[in-house]
Simulated assay, not measured.
Amino acid sequence: MEKNQAHKVKSADRVLDIFELFTGGTDSYNLSEIAKKLEMPPSSTYLILQNMLNRGYLEVDKSGKQFRIGYKLFTIRNRYIQNTSLTGEFYQIADKITEDLNETVSLSVRSGNQLLYLGEKISSQALRFTPNQSDVFPLHATASGKILLADYSEVELHTLYPEDKLEQVTSKTISSLKELKLELEKVRTLGVGYNLGETVLGVHCVAGAVLDAANQTVASISISVPEVRITDEIWDKVHVWIKRACEELGRKVYR
C-alpha cells in the first residue's frame, strides 16, 4: 500500500516537473530532451508523455516528435482568468464598443506561436466573426498576433519560426518570415496591427496592445468587421475605439 502511494506521488511529481519545464522559455521539447533535462528514464518518460498527450495536456507538432503545452491547460486557465480583473474589465469596455459599433470585440494573448482568445463580445448582426474562448490561430495570421510579436527581437522571431515558410490559413495569409518581419515594422510604426482576410476571408480586423506598468505588451484587443460593412466612418471609429480600449484596460488593470 505504501509502495503504491509512493509510486503515485513520484509519478505526479514527474508530471509537474514536465509542466514546469515549459516555463523556461522554450516552447517545445522532444522525448530525449525531456528525459535528459529531468533525469528521467526514457521509457517511463515516454509513458507519462503519452498519457499527458492522450488527456490533452500536451500536444505534438506535425513531426509527432516535439511536445508542447496542449489545449487542456488553456481551457483550465481560461476558466480561472474569467474571474480575474483582466477579462472582467475587458467585458465592460467591450460592451461600450459593441453598443456603438455592433461589431465583434476580442481579447487575446500569446500561447507559443498561437493566438489564444480569452474573451469576446460578439456582434448581434447576422454576418459576423465569432471566435470562441480557447480557439487558437497562428500569430502571424491575426492582427492581435502581429501586435504581440511586434516587440520580438530578430533572434526571438527565428526561435519561434525556425523555418521561413509560414502556415497559410487563407490565400491572404503572410506565408514567409521575411514578409512577417516587414509587416511587424509597419505595426511598430503605426501602433496597430491589421488582418485583412488572413484568418477569415472577407473579415478585416484591427488590433492594439494592452500594456502593463513596464510598458510591455501583455494582451491585445481587436475589433473584427466584415469587409462588406466597412466604410471610412466605421474604419475611423474602429481605430479610435482600439486606442481608447487598450489604454483604458491597461490603466485599470496594470497601473
Rank of each mutant, 00 (worst) to 15 (best):
I97K: 09
K65P: 00
V60Y: 03
R68S: 15
T84W: 02
S63G: 15
Y46I: 00
M52E: 10
R79G: 12
L38A: 07
I48R: 04
G56A: 03
Y80L: 12
N51A: 12
L49I: 09
T45R: 06
T104A: 11
R110S: 13
L53P: 05
S106P: 01
E39K: 11
Q66D: 12
G88E: 02
R68Q: 15
Y80D: 00
S106E: 06
Y46E: 08
I76E: 11
L38T: 05
L107Q: 04
N113S: 14
D61M: 10
V105M: 03
Q92S: 07
F74A: 02
Q50C: 11
R110P: 03
Q66K: 14
V109R: 06
R55S: 13
D61P: 15
R68Y: 12
Q114A: 14
G56W: 05
K72Y: 07
R77K: 02
E89R: 06
E59A: 06
S106V: 04
N83F: 07
F74L: 09
V109H: 07
G64A: 03
G70V: 03
D61F: 10
S44I: 11
Q114L: 13
R77C: 04
K96L: 15
L86Y: 07
R79E: 10
N78M: 01
L101N: 13
M40T: 02
P41T: 07
T45M: 06
S63N: 13
T87I: 14
L101I: 15
G70R: 04
Q50M: 14
T84K: 04
Y91A: 01
N78C: 05
A94L: 03
T87F: 06
N102Q: 12
L86A: 08
N78Q: 06
L101T: 13
S85W: 01
I93N: 03
L86Q: 05
V60N: 07
E59Y: 03
L49Q: 04
E39P: 01
L73S: 04
G70K: 04
